[in-house]
Design a binder for these strands. Structure first.
Length: 111
DNA sequence: CGGTTGACTTTCG
DNA sequence: GCGAAAGCCAACC
């Protein structure tokens, strides 16, 4: 914490929090924008999560983030959309009818 | 400083 | 189960 009101090491930046949460998603698992938003303490900021995804830094497993419907938010015909689906299947995530069973691959576990 | 923008979510028909 | 409409929040310009 600096004397000035600059950014604390605890992020406090929605973007950093979002990126950190996404990095916490285990391999072969997926999370939704709403869940990520909730994890960072902003249950209503799901849209902001998507916004952050568009600005995601390299190395971020952004492909593990999908919408609440278990569906890829990106257009199915888009390069990024196809790439995301391929990466998910590559990690063992099964897509049925273009959808992911959040009850099985969703994270964190509902339990 | 303020209106516009979204890789969203939930509710209703 | 699916499509349309409204709600919500932070970043962007």
């Amino acid at each position: 914490m600096s004397h000035r009101g600059d950014i604390n090491s605890s992020s406090q930046n929605t973007y950093s929090d979002v990126f950190d949460a996404v990095r916490r998603i285990p391999y072969g698992r997926v999370s939704t924008y709403g869940d990520i938003a909730r994890l960072i303490g902003r249950p209503r900021a799901a849209r902001v999560v998507g916004y952050a995804m568009h600005r995601c830094p390299p190395g971020l497993p952004w492909h593990r983030v999908i919408n609440a419907q278990g569906r890829i938010s990106l257009p199915a015909d888009s390069t990024a959309g196809l790439s995301q689906r391929r990466r998910l299947e590559e990690e063992g995530v099964v897509l049925i009818g273009g959808r992911v069973d959040l009850d099985r691959f969703g994270w964190p576990d509902a339990d």
